Computed example of a mutant assay.
Amino acid sequence: MSAIDILNRDTTEAAPPSTAAAQKDGDILGRIGNLETRLARTAREIDAAQAVRYRVFVDEMKAQLPLEAMRRQRDVDAYDAFCDHLLVLDRTIEGDPEDQIVGTYRLLRQDVAMANGGFYSASEFEIEGLLAKHPDKRFMELGRSCVLPEYRTKRTVELLWQGNWAYALKHGVSAMFGCASFPGVYLEGHALALSFLYHNVLAKNEWAVSALPHLARNMDLMPVEAVNPKRALMALPPLIKGYMRLGAMVGSSAVIDHAFNTTDVLIVLPISSISDRYLNYYGADAGRFAS
Rank of each mutant, 00 (worst) to 15 (best):
M1A: 08
A3H: 09
A3C: 09
D5G: 11
I6H: 14
L7Y: 12
R9E: 13
T11L: 15
T12S: 13
E13P: 06
A14M: 10
P16D: 06
S18M: 09
A20M: 10
A20N: 13
A21I: 12
A21G: 11
A22R: 13
A22L: 11
G26N: 13
I28N: 15
L29N: 14
G30K: 02
L35T: 08
L35H: 07
T37K: 04
R38E: 10
A40P: 12
R41D: 04
I46R: 00
A49C: 08
A49R: 05
Q50S: 09
A51G: 09
Y54H: 06
Y54C: 02
F57E: 05
V58F: 03
M61L: 13
M61G: 13
K62Q: 15
A69K: 03
Q73M: 09
R74H: 02
A78Y: 04
A81Q: 10
C83G: 00
L86H: 11
L87D: 10
L89R: 01
T92L: 07
E94Y: 09
E94H: 13
Q100H: 05
I101W: 10
V102Q: 03
V102I: 06
G103S: 06
T104V: 04
R106I: 00
L107E: 00
L108I: 05
Q110F: 11
D111R: 04
D111Y: 04
D111T: 08
G118L: 04
S121R: 00
S121C: 06
S121K: 00
S121V: 02
F125V: 01
E126P: 11
E128R: 03
E128F: 02
G129V: 02
D136P: 14
L142W: 06
L148P: 08
L148T: 03
E150H: 14
T153D: 14
T153F: 12
T156C: 03
V157T: 08
E158H: 15
E158P: 14
W161C: 01
L169A: 08
L169K: 11
G172W: 07
C179G: 04
C179A: 05
A180N: 04
S181C: 09
G184I: 08
G184C: 10
Y186E: 15
L187I: 11
G189P: 12
H190M: 14
A191I: 07
L192S: 08
F196G: 06
F196A: 06
L197G: 08
L197E: 10
Y198P: 12
N200F: 03
V201L: 11
V201Q: 14
S210Q: 10
L212D: 12
L212K: 05
P213H: 06
A216M: 11
A216E: 15
L221F: 15
P223Y: 12
P223M: 13
V224Y: 15
V224P: 15
P229G: 03
K230W: 14
R231I: 10
A232S: 15
L236E: 06
L236F: 08
P237F: 03
P238I: 00
Y243P: 01
M244L: 15
G247T: 12
S253N: 13
D257R: 14
H258R: 15
H258G: 07
N261G: 04
T262P: 07
D264G: 02
D264Q: 01
L266M: 10
I267R: 01
I267F: 03
L269G: 07
P270F: 02
P270K: 03
S273E: 13
I274K: 10
S275D: 09
L279Q: 12
N280P: 13
N280L: 08
Y281W: 12
Y282G: 05
A284D: 11
G287A: 03
F289I: 01
